[in-house]
Amino acid sequence: MTSPFSGIFARHDEAKRAAAAAEEAKVAESQSAEADFISAFQMAINLNAMPLFEQFVADAKANGYAAKIERVDGEDNAYCDVRFIPVPGIDFGPASATAESVFRIKGLFRTQKVEHTSFYDQRPTKTGAGTKRSTFAIQSVKEATIQRGLEEFLKDALESRSQ
């Protein structure tokens, strides 16, 4: 004779196994989507951002300003910066940190978003006022969007130092 309770135990165990399998599939899908995002972000940076960043640095140096590119590939996010000192004749060094202006494109891997940040005035007296930040989808890492962001960044940085 079969116990009336054994069916309940069996269904419960089966439901737990199905839930665990669904969770494993969800984690695998998330990891796959994150890997796809990382690949797309790195490709977009290489194809669209780097040529514009290199042109920005070349133009800044040709006009007497210090500028450089910095790139970091982290575990949770990666970013690419243009660092620029909007005062002619000042070079990078320990004393120049607050004089630097930074335009950053950052890939946020877990949320699969891209953050564009302009730290155009980092002087201590300008706390928070010299920053613009927007978050977009991966499609924002395209030439026209980056160029527009760099143009605004350059204008803001130069203007902030002329006041």
Results as ranks from 00 to 15, higher is better:
E75K: 14
N48R: 07
K132I: 08
E159W: 08
E70M: 09
P51F: 02
S134K: 15
A99W: 14
S39M: 07
T131W: 09
K142W: 09
V141E: 11
A28E: 14
K26L: 14
A157Q: 02
S101I: 00
K106P: 00
F119G: 01
K26G: 08
R83K: 15
T135Y: 07
A21W: 06
A19L: 09
Q31T: 06
E24W: 05
S3G: 09
D59M: 07
N63S: 12
I8V: 14
P88S: 14
R133W: 04
S6T: 11
A58H: 07
K155Q: 09
H12F: 13
A22R: 14
A95S: 14
D59K: 15
F153R: 00
L47H: 10
F37C: 02
V114C: 02
G7T: 08
D13K: 08
T2G: 04
Q112R: 15
T111Q: 14
A21P: 05
A137R: 09
A21L: 10
E70D: 09
A129T: 04
D36K: 13
A60T: 03
Y120P: 00
F5G: 10
T127R: 13
R123V: 00
R71P: 00
V87M: 12
D156G: 00
F9P: 00
H116A: 05
A137C: 03
Y79V: 02
K113D: 07
T145S: 12
E75P: 05
I90E: 12
G74E: 10
G89V: 06
E115Q: 15
T127F: 08
S3R: 12
G128C: 05
Q55P: 00
T2V: 10
F109L: 09
Q55S: 11
F103W: 07
A58E: 12
G64Y: 13
T117L: 03
K68L: 03
P94Q: 11
Y65K: 01
A97W: 10
T127I: 07
F103E: 00
K26Q: 15
K142Q: 14
F136L: 10
R104M: 03
G149R: 02
A49Y: 13
F109Q: 09
F136Y: 13
S118K: 04
A129N: 06
Q31C: 06
S134Q: 15
D81H: 14
S32F: 08
A15Q: 13
G64N: 10
K68D: 03
L108W: 04
S140M: 09
P124G: 05
M50C: 03
A60P: 03
Q139N: 12
I105W: 05
P86D: 07
K113A: 01
F37D: 01
S134Y: 13
T131L: 15
A144E: 15
F37R: 02
F103D: 00
C80S: 10
G93P: 10
R71W: 07
R148A: 11
Y65A: 01
Q122C: 04
